[in-house]
């Protein structure tokens, strides 16, 4: 936040809000256009979770509990991972690159309200997350006979866990984008966070098989809670007893994700920069 804090609004608040909303939507449209035209990003961020699902479930076979196969366990984990990839990884890397190339500075030099930029990013992340989740669920239904949630309650849980999870991830992604010094190092700085979390959060491996200390570490991050919340949607209720706490802990899922949304917001406000770090000249 070293640069250009929000200027006092002199315009009528309502006209200003309308301007922010319309430019935010417009930016969202532009972000999506760019995203879907960038073939590599589409392939990697949308298909990567599909590949992960196929590869992992072909590696391990059999039931991990009565009536629950490893593939069943994997589906919610991979959906959560997909949300993390679109929300966190893709966003952190793309913003770091925009900043390094000066694209953020160019936007900051215009009278566009700063918030419109973030609204645009949020729209992009939400739309790509929905697309990604639909693709993953469709693949799991076809390949692994996954049952779609049967009750309105389950759909509701699916909705709020995904929304809170992807929001927390996106905010952390925006905050982390300020960490890499340049665009070349961005993937190297960002990817390890996502990679490690996938393995310790019950996304790729059965969470309760992990040593307790790893479980504790994982519990400090949002992915573990996203996976657990989504398991409550896709696995039979009987499986709740197999969880680390012998329950789905949906209350704690909400608490953990909301805490990360708050922390992510604070981190964003504290770290976001529109320009590269000082370079003299």
């Amino acid at each position: 936040m070293t640069v250009l804090t929000v200027a006092p609004a002199r315009r009528l608040p309502r006209a200003r809000l309308r301007r922010i909303a319309s430019l935010g939507l417009y930016r969202g449209q532009l972000e999506l256009l760019q995203f879907f035209r960038g073939t590599e990003t589409v392939v990697f961020s949308l298909l990567f979770p599909v590949f992960a699902l196929v590869i992992f479930s072909s590696m391990f076979d059999g039931e991990i509990a009565p009536g629950v196969t490893y593939s069943d366990y994997l589906v919610p984990g991979i959906i959560a991972t997909g949300l993390m990839v679109t929300g966190f990884q893709t966003l952190a890397i793309s913003i770091a690159i925009e900043r390094d190339r000066g694209g953020l500075k160019r936007i900051a030099a215009t009278p566009m309200p700063r918030s419109a930029y973030f609204i645009g990013k949020v729209i992009m992340v939400l739309v790509t997350s929905v697309v990604e989740t639909v693709v993953l669920v469709a693949v799991s239904v076809v390949l692994y006979g996954t049952h779609l949630p049967g009750t309105a309650d389950a759909w509701l849980t699916f909705g709020w866990v995904s929304l809170l999870g992807v929001t927390a991830c996106a905010l952390c992604g925006i905050a982390l984008s300020s960490l890499p010094r340049n665009s070349r190092s961005a993937p190297a700085v960002v990817a390890p966070f996502a990679f490690v979390l996938q393995f310790i959060s019950g996304a790729a491996l059965v969470f309760t098989d992990l040593p307790p200390w790893l479980q504790w570490i994982a519990s400090a991050f949002p992915l573990k809670w996203m996976c657990q919340g989504l398991r409550s949607v896709f696995l039979p209720d009987s499986y709740a007893a197999q969880e680390a706490a012998h329950s789905w802990q949906l209350g704690w899922v909400a608490v953990a994700l909301i805490a990360w949304v708050i922390l992510g917001t604070v981190l964003c406000l504290a770290t976001f920069r529109w320009t590269k770090t000082r370079d003299g000249g």
Binding site: A7, R10, L33, R37, G38, E98, G103, T110, P111
Partner: peptide
């Protein structure tokens, strides 16, 4: 300065290449 001031200023930056796909 605020956005109204920004609207009266133009900045030509060095090429950034962030619009590749547009």
């Amino acid at each position: 300065a605020d956005e109204e001031w920004r609207a009266r200023i133009g900045v030509v930056l060095q090429t950034t290449g962030e619009f590749e796909d547009l």
